[in-house]
Design a protein around this nucleic acid. Structure first.
Length: 582
DNA sequence: GCCGTTTTCGGCCCGACTGTTTTCAGTCG
């Protein structure tokens, strides 16, 4: 996993260096595609290399596979390093400035010896950047603005932050009279874990006028570009939003194009070309004849493919699967019957047991587990044995009060996996809990072997049903812990333990790529909210999105199971263990 | 640099917007 990331970054950097140097742009594209491929697979590159299977990875051929082998052996790729040596990172990163691409950067570097952001600012602020052929006042002004945006906000934002803003904007757009239809597209629609910008598509018989209305919406702060069919704006909260307007008859083709991913769409268009068709955002064409485009499905059907949900469109094998007729039937939000990880005021939650149960009932949950923290999580007010007793009493009283009303309320705990691999409650206490989620909350920096050992120990405990947020990463804030993922997955498969897909938008842990690998290896999954308030109970939807991105079908997710099946699984490892003790 | 029910060489998705170009280059998605 780490290795894939590292090599992907080198390849990405190579692509930019080649673009900067003005070399063959298709060579740069090849590196880009390879980087994307590596990010999309979880398989161990060392193992693939050992089996001489690197070339099976799409976009990896003779040269790149040799480079990967070299990296595995030595931690270096000589050819890349030689190519990249004379282009320092601080220069390359300037390509992240909106509107500043490789050509302009190369020019500024050659003509004015710009090497980093400081040089560039100095040049512009002093008004020392003269106008010259092909470089006028407006370009300079745009560059100045681009630098401002670059410095204000370079990082991508979490889906959980962006999605509500995007939906608000969509709402406003739909209220414009000239707007006949509107939908979110792009990475928001594909539900990637972080978002660079919002893409919005509208249908209108007068797109130009509709766009003019759109950019006047109150939540639009600034207009970057405005044309007949598209506009680019900065919204409140400094999110870039790209809007595209098409006619109804092109809406489906436009939605497909605008949803991407780029690589997925390129594949479709290449397939079309091979079949004598042309796909663009206006439709599917055979020669001059439009043969489809009003519905998104038209694009796929024209190529003899089944329709693919947006979450699959990453060029991670979905096109091949569609050709073979092996597309998965993805889990849907409605499939969830239970939620097995949440907190109350007993530990660090903001809502009481009662409030959480009531809200869960409104969400239609059939069963839920109240899983407050265990004693070692002091900051989270984890429950010592005494308070745990009190909570058990409260939950039992609540169960009596509620009788047969749904949801069934299960007594649970999120139990720390301690630094030495022991769990934070003794077995006789765990035996009294219906649901045990075991999670790492400390000693993140231990060696790979020790973390692996801790997880394996937790999985071996017969009272544990779920490993909570397995990597402990916080998006944009904390790196995942390192452990032998395949070994851990193997153990969960053997033990019938579920790996969590934590729905908190700060976590999304496991992520899409790892979830897919776990799922394909046969591991059970649990999609939980990890809610710390009533509102957060709905965050399971983010977990479901990630699971869909991971090709997950409902049958592998334990909390989609009807109660009888779920409750059997919940207890399936306990009986023999209890007999042993008893 | 990759890739092949046309191809082992010659392709590689397709179009919009901006600026300053009098016919297009650069950037973006």
């Amino acid at each position: 996993m780490m290795m894939n990331q590292e090599i992907a970054e080198i390849f990405d950097r190579m692509a930019r260096v080649l673009a900067f140097k003005g070399k063959d742009r298709f060579r740069a594209l090849a590196y880009e595609r390879a980087a994307g491929s590596l990010r999309g697979i979880e398989q161990d590159l060392t193992e693939l290399a050992g089996q001489k299977k690197l070339k099976n990875i799409p976009g990896i051929g003779k040269d790149l596979s040799e480079m990967i082998e070299e990296y595995i052996r030595t931690g270096h790729i000589t050819r890349c390093e030689r190519e990249m040596r004379d282009v320092p990172d601080e220069l390359l990163v300037l390509m992240d400035i909106p509107g500043l691409g490789p050509k302009t950067l190369a020019l500024l570097n050659k003509k004015f010896h710009i090497k980093n952001i400081k040089d560039l600012e100095r040049l512009i602020e002093k008004g020392a950047l003269p106008e010259f052929h092909g470089f006028g006042k407006k370009k300079i002004e745009n560059l100045r603005r681009g630098i401002g945006m670059f410095e204000a906000n370079t990082q991508r934002r979490r889906l959980g932050v962006v999605l509500p803003m995007a939906e608000k904007l969509l709402d406003e757009a739909r209220r414009i009279k000239l707007v006949e239809r509107a939908d979110l597209a792009g990475s928001v629609r594909r539900r990637t874990e972080t978002i660079g910008d919002i893409d919005l598509l509208i249908a209108s018989s007068n797109g130009e006028e509709a766009l003019r209305e759109f950019v006047k919406l109150p939540s639009i702060k600034r207009v970057r570009a405005l044309g007949k069919t598209s506009a680019s704006v900065i919204t409140e909260g400094d999110l870039q939003t790209d809007v595209r307007a098409v006619s109804q008859q092109s809406y489906g083709a436009a939605l497909q194009y605008f949803t991407g991913s780029k690589q997925h769409t390129v594949r479709l268009r290449t397939m079309a070309r091979e079949r004598g068709l042309k796909i663009n955002e206006y439709g599917v064409f055979r020669g001059e004849d439009r043969i489809g485009g009003e519905d998104e499905k038209d694009v796929y059907y024209a190529l003899g493919l089944k329709f693919m949900p947006p979450e699959l469109r990453e060029d991670r094998g979905e096109i091949e699967a569609a050709i073979d007729g092996h597309l998965p039937t993805l889990i849907e939000e409605n499939d969830l019957r239970g939620d097995l990880h949440m907190h109350t005021t007993w530990s660090d939650g903001r809502a009481s047991v009662e409030e959480m149960v009531e809200r869960a009932a409104k969400l239609g949950r059939e069963y839920i587990a109240l899983t407050d923290h265990s004693q070692s999580s002091r900051i989270a007010r984890g429950l010592d044995l005494e308070r745990l007793e009190l909570k058990i009493e409260e939950v039992e009283a609540l169960r009596k009060r509620r009788g047969k009303r749904k949801p069934r309320v299960l007594m649970g705990a999120e139990v720390d996996i301690l630094a030495d691999g022991r769990l934070d409650y003794p077995d006789q206490i765990l035996a009294r809990l219906d649901v045990v989620v075991a999670s790492i909350h400390s000693a993140f920096r231990q060696s790979k072997d020790r973390i692996t050992g801790r997880l394996l120990d937790a999985i071996a405990n017969p009272y544990v049903q779920i490993i909570g947020h397995p990597t402990t990463r916080l998006i944009g804030a904390r790196e995942p812990v390192e452990f032998n993922f395949r070994q851990v997955v193997k153990a969960t498969v053997a033990a019938g333990v579920a790996l969590e897909v934590n729905g908190s938008p700060n976590r999304l842990d496991l992520n899409d790529v790892m979830t897919r690998a776990a799922h394909e290896a046969g591991s059970l999954l649990a999609i939980d909210s990890d809610a710390h308030s009533t509102a957060q109970l709905a965050q399971t939807s983010f977990g479901v999105s990630q699971a869909r991105r991971a090709w997950v079908e409902a049958r592998s997710v334990v909390n989609t199971w009807p109660w009888p099946k779920f409750s059997r699984w919940m207890r399936h490892r306990r009986r023999p263990a209890e007999e042993e003790i008893g």
